[in-house]
């Protein structure tokens, strides 16, 4: 009927006009790490912003002031959804707590790149993973411990993170490589860790005072590394215990030799790869489901190498352009 066709054409035109007018596509993507303003996460900010700028995207960067505030971290994701940001790069604070909301973002049609965690859902057209190579990091740590204790010895492992799959993977990888590479080095003590520095300091202090035969403390997180370092310098008498840590936090203790070494995540490269993945997914292109980025061992000797110095470029980046 011609009359119905006319009505249909009018309704379709109005609907299309409303849809085009109302839905203005944002050019901003959200990057939500575990926290901001630290040596670990600001290089990721730099890497993501560099690639975003080249690809014509803007970056919204924010996270809770302290690691461990999962609820606050998820609220930033909700904020990103409400603001209509086109995609999400996200480093979960807790694996299980983050799963539902990430799936909600994916089902809303926005691509997500998960950083430094195995969230659970398999990769797909809108979900990919970019993560620190924990097995390589474990090997670096084990090799360093073996170098410190060539004849064997006892170590304590602190800062085991049970709330993150990547934390469990790190610990399991370390023990596996240790048992195969340096069977004469024994793990005498294991302690879980949280995101409170003084709690980790208390744990390390207890180890230093009650277990004098421990030769090396292996701290599996930046918080645990700092806690172990604080325990060592707060002690009345100097301690011969070496600290091998993970995740960059303070540089000076390494330069002074008070912390032997830290397995440093190349979070700048992680940010670059994650943003490239996100941009490709926004254009409907296929990306690698899981990308591993190798870490770097930071010691007194390697503190000036280009790969390490490249991480601190965020200090001079013009953030007004992000």
């Amino acid at each position: 009927m011609p009359g119905l066709k006319t009505i249909g054409a009018i309704v379709a035109t109005l609907s299309a006009s409303l849809a085009i007018g109302c839905r203005q596509q944002s050019s901003t993507v959200a990057v939500i790490p575990r926290t901001t303003g630290t040596l670990l996460w600001e290089p990721m900010h730099l890497g993501a912003a560099e690639v975003a700028q080249a690809d014509g995207l803007h970056v919204y960067w924010n996270a809770p002031a302290d690691e461990g505030d999962t609820e606050k971290q998820l609220s930033f994701i909700n904020l990103s959804l409400a603001r209509g940001y086109r995609g999400l790069i996200f480093a979960p604070d807790e694996t299980l707590a983050s799963r539902s909301l990430v799936l909600q973002v994916v089902t809303s049609g926005r691509p997500v790149v998960i950083v430094n965690d195995q969230l659970g859902p398999p990769p797909g057209p809108l979900l990919s993973y970019v993560t620190n190579d924990e097995e390589m990091g474990a090997k670096l740590a084990v090799d360093r411990v073996a170098q410190i204790l060539p004849g064997g010895g006892s170590i304590a492992v602190i800062g085991i993170s049970p709330r993150l799959e990547s934390g469990i993977l790190r610990e399991e990888s370390f023990e596996k490589v240790l048992s195969s590479t340096a069977p004469n080095i024994h793990i005498e003590i294991r302690r879980y860790g949280d995101s409170v520095v003084t709690h980790q300091q208390q744990i390390a202090d207890e180890i230093l005072k009650r277990y004098p035969h421990i030769n090396v403390i292996v701290a599996l997180t930046g918080t645990a590394t700092r806690g172990a370092y604080f325990a060592k310098i707060a002690a009345d008498a100097p301690s011969p215990v070496k600290i091998v840590g993970f995740d960059q936090d303070l540089l000076l203790p390494i330069q002074l030799g008070e912390v032997d070494s830290v397995v440093v995540e190349n979070t700048r490269a992680i940010g670059q790869v994650a943003m490239r993945n996100l941009d490709a997914q926004l254009r409907g292109e296929k990306v690698n489901g899981v990308t591993l980025v190798p870490p770097i061992l930071l010691t007194q000797e390697t503190s000036g190498i280009p790969e390490i110095n490249g991480l601190w470029g965020f200090l001079h980046y013009p953030w007004r352009e992000q």
């Binding site: 520095v197 003084t198 300091q201 208390q202 202090d205 207890e206 370092y229 604080f230 325990a231 310098i233 707060a234 000076l252 002074l256």
Partner: peptide, 14 residues
């Protein structure tokens, strides 16, 4: 700076 760090560490001794 080192003194600041040590003071911070000692504040939380148990």
């Amino acid at each position: 700076y080192l003194a600041s760090v040590r003071n911070e560490a000692r504040q939380h001794e148990v």
